[in-house]
């Protein structure tokens, strides 16, 4: 039994069948990436996992426990935490307030303090700017903040939705370095990315989603060599 196990999920937006029986699993301590084009259903997959969207069929199990019957805030409390797409920091709150908001599900002040310390170690930049209003941060800093905010909740699985979106190449490298660091610290990560090249570099395994159907899964290394993946997602001819 895998750490996080998604089985035969069907999800709908109104009449649109967005996920057509998708399955994947993530083992403890692993980075797994989900790649695919725009509208393939990658974000839907994460939304369904974190409970923001309920699937019509299928099951999602975390450590053997069925997640689909829980509400989003309960799922966060179990340690399945999402870094939302497009960062979405609380623009009018300060950096520190944003981080504290991330620890909403926790109640132990010592634990919150320790998490804050951990986030500041990971992102010294956020420590420097903790009193700054989040809306005035640069894109890269906002991504740090969104990631840090999710880390505040003590995630056991981190669901990252396109962390590199809209960032300059240098910052993209930074983000992927952070992901490596988190992995080294033992965090389990399910990474949704359009930047397939980078994602496959950090991940151990990968899945390819196409129009709501999982078309391919393999180790990251094999996927990097795969003809179809190279053509469609790595931009090679």
């Amino acid at each position: 039994m895998a750490f996080l196990e998604i089985e035969e999920i069907h999800a709908y937006y109104g009449h649109i069948h967005a996920l057509k029986g998708v399955s994947l699993y993530v083992e403890k301590g692993e980075i797994v990436t989900l790649i695919g084009a725009n509208g393939a259903g990658k974000s839907t997959m994460l939304k369904t996992t974190s409970g923001l969207l309920s699937p019509r069929h299928g099951s999602i199990r975390f450590e053997g426990e069925e997640l689909t019957r829980y509400r989003p805030h309960e799922i966060v409390a179990k340690g399945v935490v999402q870094v939302p797409e497009g960062r979405r920091v609380f623009g009018r709150l300060t950096v520190r307030e944003n981080l504290e908001m991330g620890a909403f599900a926790l109640s132990d002040p010592k634990l919150i303090e320790a998490n804050l310390e951990r986030v500041f170690n990971l992102f010294p930049r956020l420590k420097e700017r903790q009193k700054q209003v989040a809306g005035t941060l640069s894109g890269g800093e906002q991504q740090m903040l969104a990631t840090g905010r999710a880390l505040m909740a003590n995630p056991r699985v981190l669901l990252m939705d396109e962390p590199s979106m809209g960032l300059a190449p240098v910052l993209v490298d930074n983000i992927f370095n952070t992901i490596r660091q988190l992995h080294a610290q033992g965090t389990t990560i399910l990474l949704v990315e359009q930047n397939a090249r980078k994602a496959l570099e950090v991940a151990s395994r990968g899945y390819v989603l196409q129009s709501g159907v999982m078309v391919l899964t393999d180790t990251a290394q094999n996927l990097q060599r795969n003809e179809m993946v190279r053509k469609a997602y790595l931009g090679e001819t």
Binding site: H73, V81, Q82, P84, G91, G102, F104, A153
Partner: peptide, 25 residues
């Protein structure tokens, strides 16, 4: 209070508030 912060998060962004573990209902 805690509930005040939950209100504030909800006011700023409902979806993210939910993803922070806030019970919207």
């Amino acid at each position: 209070s805690r509930i005040g912060r939950a209100w504030m998060a909800m006011r700023e962004d409902e979806d993210v508030a939910q993803a922070m573990g806030i019970n919207l209902v």
